[in-house]
Write a protein that binds this DNA or RNA. Sequence first.
DNA 1: TTGCGACGTTAACAAAAGATAATTTCAAGA
DNA 2: TCTTGAAATTATCTTTTGTTAACGTCGCAA
Lengths: 197, 197
Amino acid sequence: MSTIDTLQKLLFDLAGVLPADTEPLFAMTTPVSLETNEAYIREGESSRRLAFIESGVIRAYTIKENGDEATLLLRWEGQFIASHDTIINRQPSRFIYRALEPVKLLQIDYGVLEEILKTHPEYEPLRNFFLMKMLAESLKMLESFVTQSPEERYRELLSERFDLVNRVPDKYIASMLGITPVSLSRIRKRMYTKSKQ
Amino acid sequence: MSTIDTLQKLLFDLAGVLPADTEPLFAMTTPVSLETNEAYIREGESSRRLAFIESGVIRAYTIKENGDEATLLLRWEGQFIASHDTIINRQPSRFIYRALEPVKLLQIDYGVLEEILKTHPEYEPLRNFFLMKMLAESLKMLESFVTQSPEERYRELLSERFDLVNRVPDKYIASMLGITPVSLSRIRKRMYTKSKQ
DNA sequence: TTGCGACGTTAACAAAAGATAATTTCAAGA
DNA sequence: TCTTGAAATTATCTTTTGTTAACGTCGCAA
């Protein structure tokens, strides 16, 4: 099933919009391809991009004061990704979005989407769905930070997203868990030696 | 300015809806008062509540497997609060929302709001605003967990929300920062002795 | 006034994480 | 095939946090 098919089905399920009636929306979308390690959104960039990932993994990260990188989140095929600083806070992005693998996505400018929604309110549930999804995921991660130790967070990530952990370098996983790569390596060792007993 | 005035102004600023045209919305809202320590939403509850806090502070927390509490977030006057498990995930709430002070809020059932939005799409920007706000805040907290140490998170909280820190018992602040009350006490001591040098 | 209980602080020790550097592993490119 | 460089592991040491328990403080109620 193509990306547009997927999104048309989503729009039908959410709002009963027939695929034939989605032309005004998809006419304004652009397919984008990214190579491995290519930046999708750069620091300081002001474009407001919302995209649906068809394939590949994107990492959103920021540069800390000391120069280190901190990974905020990872997004992969079947998910939406958005330059949240520009869309929500209307400020130049402090985050960099970069492809970890070859990525294909379907993109729309958020400002254009807002214009379309003014004349086509029937698409509104789609925006709502996207915001709810992002919020649910953010809250879930936040919950894991206040309820779990780094080791518990890693174990949960392994059990829920084993495929993802195997596709993404450990150092990015570590930083998303809020720890250093050295610590993650020690956690892995602890887990391995414990399970062997 | 009353709560309804505040929200009417918000709706006008967001969507150009005149205060006189907000009757269908506010007819479905209910003012609620909570005493100190009273639960607003209990664990396992399924009601889908969205509310605007007129005064007071509410704490959202969950009970960990070991029985300890973990505070996810604090909300105070001028903010929206929502039973996110029931609204977003459509599952009984794993979280408890409890007043830390006497609280006054204006409440609406989320299902009722959805019905109103079907016939009054002009209110839609309000839902959108609320979701954006919550998402912005969640992402900001998430960012602090991946970029900052507990001490840095506490310093930032002090500088941005000094009033809040002084209204809320330290143990809840600690748990929101992802650390124990003992650790927060040590951080405070470190900060104090450092600044005296 | 006294006593109780919750809260914050302190102490002592164990466990985990950070910082730094050396070493190993491994895949991509010359 | 060989080389190079990034990633992961390991080691060492320091710092921070967790755990548990004791202690002091303060407000509230008996």
